[in-house]
């Protein structure tokens, strides 16, 4: 009866109950806020990008145009990477990646009709800076100065 099994599981003390040796090794980790790196039998050597280098920080800041702002930001990324490293424990041999739950659906096709009239006023209204009917951007895509040239990283 399900009742007994459930009670047993509850008494057994909140283990996630996944089967398999690998899962047992990870038992205590689910839902906890400790982000230890992976150390199961399936680990394949040092985690890629395990340490967040200055080069990586700069690379990400440039690609994302978002800055880390302070050491806390970097630590957050470090933790996120380590956390994600837990995925390595899962055996995904032969598993096809799932992009979307809609993979068995077909894409809806729209007829080639012009259905949107000019809405230039509505669009320009929300922009902070327009000139005549253009949006305005600063000149060119000049690259951001390197880290060393910027203001020193501040504490939060």
């Amino acid at each position: 009866m399900w009742r007994r099994t459930l009670r047993a599981a509850l008494r057994a003390g909140l283990s996630p109950g996944t089967t398999g040796a690998v899962a047992e090794a990870r038992a205590a980790r689910v839902g906890s806020s400790r982000f230890a790196g992976s150390d199961s039998g399936k680990a394949e050597g040092p985690s890629p990008g395990g340490r967040v280098s200055a080069e990586l920080i700069e690379h990400l800041e440039r690609l994302a145009l978002v800055d880390f702002r302070n050491r806390e930001g970097v630590a957050r990324l470090q933790a996120a990477i380590e956390f994600a490293g837990q995925l390595r424990a899962v055996d995904t041999d032969g598993v096809v990646p799932m992009e979307s739950v809609l993979e068995d659906r077909c894409l809806y096709l729209r007829a080639d009709d012009v259905v949107e009239d000019s809405c230039v006023e509505a669009l320009l209204q929300n922009s902070q800076w327009t000139v005549e009917e253009y949006f305005v951007a600063p000149p060119g895509n000049i690259t951001l100065p390197k880290q060393s040239e910027q203001d020193p990283v501040t504490e939060s």
Partner: peptide
């Protein structure tokens, strides 16, 4: 100063 700088500051 530049588009990139503007984007970065806006997002910050």
């Amino acid at each position: 100063v530049s588009t990139e700088a503007m984007y970065a500051a806006t997002r910050r």
